[in-house]
Design a protein around this nucleic acid. Structure first.
Length: 639
RNA sequence: GCCGUGGUAGCUCAGGGGUAGAGCAACUGAUUCGUAAUCAGUAGGUCGGAGGUUCAAAUCCUCUCCACGGCACCA
């Protein structure tokens, strides 16, 4: 007897071993038809897998989230079959499901063209229509290797060779095509449905290693139904509309050009936003008892050798020569800050010392890595280093986390998650030091009440780090803030303070940033608000637009009064229709339009129209001045 | 850096061996108008750069630069 417990708690007994499909059939024909896989004690397996012992079983249908990965994985297989049918001699490698879809990496001498994608997709639909049963087989390891070798599938053979010894070698067959795969899979290709689309072609290194040959990757997206597919495609269009490079150009915020690859030309409007953001951060740091410094951009190689940067990042540093010295443009600010710390004698009474700098840094990023404002070679960080005692790590982490969350809140981000990155393979400092640093950071996260996910081996070379990830308005994640515990650099650059008992002690250094870099954060901000900056950040906060030239003098007066209150206001006195002006400034994403005609001039009122709405409100000039002044106040300066 | 795709007016794009095009923007003039594009006219180009093939190259070939999409990288 096999007792199967279903999700509703009911138990069904079977004479002997039973498959998921049989269980589904026992419940009802509708469920049997919808069934895609089963979970047996929380492990997803094929519908055809026999269950020989008592278990908790649930039938997976397209309605389950778990089915999505299955569907996408099958889509990858169907694509691989289509490719091998159309392009004999192409080798298959791996093809997993990923967020929103799937990909498959192929080895083929000829590159695929975009036209090929249409052909492949068409063939995929044929394979789905064939509704081939998908069957699992367990093969002998050596025979499997020989079989794939014989077929010219070198990559697959290599994968099998590298599988751990005890692992069964499973193969999934659909029609006369098969692929090595761990599974599980759908019962037949027809279950994939038609809500998929091939998206793009890309190169990808075999096993993700740039020393290996490059394969051709085809990306696709797949969904349970056409509605979800089209919703996804709409989301992509939405992301494209928000692209900071497009908005930056349309709104005249900044530009990039090839003579200064990876460096930003900020235009007046973009720079206005940037400066407002920087002024805000500066106020927040001052209030949190940071002291601001500024350190040299060109620094002798010897300092970078001492800090360890030269050894690890020399290739990504810009250098210059002068009078037989090799100088490097600083890639980070920390060694400079330690030089300031080292001036004079520091006492335990000086700690924690929170030293901030809007440091202008340069890193020679690979040309292929550059991406608008998101990845640049010249940038400014909202950087600071907290020199403290080991005992102060926990409280400093706590107060930093509170500051960070408050800043993100002010900037319109509420959803923040945390990643904990521990020791990387290539690192400085002893294991004992790392043990201490990781333990300290872990204690601190606990004290700060943070839940985090582990990001193994991703720490900085000098210490473990917390990474703060924020989610934007359309659900994308951006890693921005960081807090890194560093016992190594103070040692290498010989920083110390005098403790209570008169002993010379190494301070601990906490590297921390909230925005990360201003450039990248500006990009994120632009995309998050789709160019519609909150009033306090908007480059032009209001436009006073006239209906007739008779109102010119009044409009100029309104502009002057608002300007006196500190608002950024433009008067549009052009001889254009009000429709034209409203449209132009709406497209330009100006938050507030103040329309004045003969009536307003006579009554000393203003017709206020907000971006995104059609409503107009005629208010007394004094009320408008008071309201806008209050609304335009940065969040930290509000009462 | 690697693979792929691109580069034509300020912007968005058409044209693919035979005189360089459109829309928007710009400029000039007319229009004074009540909440998302008033009308008419004018001007605007080393077709990314260099070399080659050809009677003739934006168009074909080679090299190169840059951008875009991924991959690798990201202190």
């Amino acid at each position: 007897m096999v007792a199967i417990t279903l999700p509703d708690g009911s138990v069904r007994s079977f004479e002997g071993p039973v498959t998921g499909l049989q269980i589904a059939q026992g419940i009802g024909p509708g469920l049997a038809k919808a069934a895609l896989a089963v979970t047996v004690d929380d492990v997803m397996v094929d519908l055809s897998t026999t269950i020989g012992t008592d278990a908790r079983v649930s039938i997976v249908t397209a309605r389950d989230d778990a089915a999505l990965a299955l569907l996408r994985h099958d889509a990858a297989h169907v694509m691989a079959q289509a490719v091998q049918e159309l392009f004999p001699g192409t080798q298959v490698t791996i093809g997993p499901s990923i967020e929103n879809g799937f990909y498959y990496d192929f080895a083929r001498n000829e590159p695929f063209s975009l036209d090929d994608l249409a052909l492949i997709e068409e063939r995929m639909r044929e394979i789905v229509a064939r509704n081939l049963p998908i069957e699992r087989e367990v093969w002998d390891r050596d025979e499997a290797i020989a079989w794939f070798r014989d077929k010219g599938e070198q990559y697959k053979a290599e994968i099998i060779e590298d599988l751990p010894a005890g692992e069964p070698i499973t193969v999934y067959r659909q029609g006369d095509w098969l692929d090595l795969c761990r599974g599980p899979h759908l019962p037949s290709t027809g279950k994939l449905g038609t809500a998929f689309k091939l998206m793009k072609l890309a190169g990808a290194y075999w096993r993700g290693d740039s020393r290996n040959p490059m394969l051709q990757r085809i990306y696709g997206t797949a969904w349970p139904d056409a509605k979800q597919l089209s919703a996804y495609l709409t989301r992509l269009e939405e992301a494209e509309r928000r692209d900071h490079r497009r908005l930056g150009q349309e709104m005249g915020l900044f530009h990039l050009q090839e003579e200064a690859q990876g460096a930003v030309f900020w235009h007046p409007k973009g720079w206005t936003v940037y400066r407002s953001l920087q002024a805000y951060i500066r106020r927040r740091l001052e209030k949190a008892d940071y002291v601001e410094v500024n350190t040299p951009m060109l620094v002798d190689r010897s300092l970078w050798e001492k800090s360890g940067h030269w050894e690890k990042f020399r290739e990504n540093m810009f250098t210059s020569e002068a009078e037989e010295r090799v100088l490097a443009l600083k890639p980070m600010n920390c060694p400079g800050h330690i030089q300031i710390f080292r001036q004079g004698i520091k006492s335990y009474r000086d700690l924690p010392l929170r030293m901030s700098e809007f440091g202008s840094c340069h890193r020679n990023e690979a040309s292929g890595a550059l991406h608008g404002l998101m990845r640049v070679r010249a940038f400014v960080q909202d950087d600071a280093h907290i020199f403290c005692t080991e005992d102060q790590i926990v409280s400093e982490t706590q107060s930093f986390c509170a500051l960070l969350k408050s800043v993100y809140h002010d900037l319109g981000f509420e959803d923040v998650s945390v990643k904990f990155s521990d020791r990387p393979a290539k690192r400085a400092g002893s294991d004992a030091t790392w043990d201490k640093a990781e333990a300290a950071l872990r204690d601190a996260t606990e004290a700060a009440g943070l839940s985090w996910t582990l990001n193994p081996g991703e720490g900085a070379f000098y210490g473990p780090k917390l990474e703060f990830v924020l989610r934007d308005a359309i659900g994308r994640d951006w890693q921005c803030g960081t807090l890194q515990v560093d016992f190594v650099l103070p040692e290498r650059l010989d920083a110390h303070y005098v403790a209570e008992d008169g002993a010379k002690v190494r301070p601990v250094m906490l590297h921390r940033a909230i925005l990360g870099t201003f450039e990248r954060f500006m990009g994120i901000l632009i995309e998050n608000c789709a160019g519609r900056f909150p009033l306090w950040l908007a480059p032009v906060q209001a436009v006073v637009a006239t209906i007739t030239s008779e109102a010119d003098a009044y409009a100029t007066e309104v502009q002057a009064l608002l300007k006196k209150k500190g608002l950024r206001v433009v008067a549009d006195l052009r001889n254009e229709k009000i429709n034209y002006k409203v449209r132009e400034h709406s497209v330009g994403k100006v938050p507030v339009m103040l329309v004045v005609g003969r009536k307003e001039a006579e009554n000393r009122t203003v017709a206020v129209r907000r971006l995104g709405g059609e409503a107009q409100e005629v208010l007394a000039l004094d009320d408008v001045l008071a309201t806008l002044t209050s609304e335009a106040t940065p969040p930290d300066l509000r009462d």
